[in-house]
Design a protein around this nucleic acid. Structure first.
Lengths: 213, 213
DNA sequence: GTCTATACGTCGATAGAC
DNA sequence: GTCTATCGACGTATAGAC
């Protein structure tokens, strides 16, 4: 008689896989990809090192899954912020996205650095491209609407959106690495980072009165 | 008696190393890092695959050297453009950097994509961070001067500089991948890319009359 | 240049599910 | 009784220290 996986076993396997992912997310938040060794993940998940390979064929595959999971959260968060009914203008929505993104990043700097800039396996690098596209599309929709309504000056919404994604990411990398890493001083994540980024964004969009209170 | 490398041998070795780098640069320009296999580099340099390891301990080391070489050129090019005496304002200089960078990138799209976004070995990824810092510093100096002179509104020059680096890089990735790669249409590198990026830059800097001809 | 330490991925053995 | 999941140590490669 052939062996058939019972629901109980399947449930246990699923739980174990979840535990692996949870362990990986925890390590990623605390020590970035540098701390995500297979041994460390396994230990935190309470299983043997070799058992991780029952769920992921390689470290790269696990790394990609962790990346996608975290990025999924971030995209959902900024999308939610953009769609709040309190925001009446396109600029408001774009700013909400930037603020949400930056605030969340600065609140979890190690994780944000891991997602944005930490040198990683090429497989994860490839995922970064798709995640940036996702953010770009969020921006592009908002900007296009603003241009159509006449609120924003005519512009290539796609290009402006890409530029804002790059600007936000790059502007955060400095403040992100400053406090945690032992870099040369002068990169402190001053409390002015988010407002400064917002001002940059509004100006870049071509909002008439960019220097708002 | 110990073996002593004669000048003639040394010269031949140096020439071989140069040939390897040249071959790598050629492949990088034509097919990106994807085309830079050790075998392909060796073949183009006219030596055996194993001989490449006489000059570079690993593929990663060769990749890093190629990256640094090309980026060095780019930094020199934009620095030169920024320092032209014809430019009278800080905004002019910043725009010159952006234009130079973008124009050169669009003229060598495969190479630019390799430098900016292609998934690569983590060692090259780490180099990207230092190269971005170099560009940021170029911008930061120009912007700080503009703020000091009152030409530009008060702002964190460091942050604006970082944001512009990210914006320029990200805005180009789309147009760069569009024409060559078989992506979905709509990402064409229209002739308006550079002007659009310049407009974005001027607005972001807070230049009063950003909508210049 | 050697030597140690770390980390990925695999393997044989054991315990347990069917 | 057969097949599978788990363990944990091992092989191998690589990076960093001395």
């Amino acid at each position: 008689m052939a062996y058939r996986r019972t629901p109980a076993v399947q449930a246990r396997l699923d739980a174990q896989r979840t535990a692996v992912v949870e362990a990986g997310l925890g390590l990623l938040s605390e020590h970035g990809y540098a701390g995500c060794t297979m041994a460390a993940v396994a230990a935190r998940a309470g299983i043997a090192t070799g058992s991780v390979y029952r769920h992921f064929p390689s470290k790269a595959a696990l790394s990609v899954e962790l990346f996608r999971t975290v990025v999924g959260r971030e995209v959902a968060a900024v999308s939610g912020a953009a769609n709040l009914r309190a925001h009446r203008t396109a600029a408001d929505r774009v700013v909400a996205v930037i603020e949400t993104f930056a605030t969340r990043a600065l609140k979890a700097p190690r994780l944000a650095y891991a997602l944005l800039a930490e040198p990683v396996d090429p497989a994860v690098d490839a995922e970064r491209l798709v995640f940036r596209r996702a953010f770009r599309d969020v921006f592009a929709g908002l900007i296009a609407a603003g241009v159509d309504s006449g609120e924003l000056p005519p512009q290539d919404a796609r290009l402006t959106a890409s530029a804002l994604v790059g600007a936000g990411a790059e502007a955060l990398i400095g403040p992100l690495t400053g406090p945690s890493a032992g870099e040369a001083a002068g990169e402190a994540a001053g409390p002015g980072t988010v407002p400064a980024l917002v001002t940059f964004t509004l100006r870049a969009l071509g909002v008439p009165d960019a220097d708002h209170a």
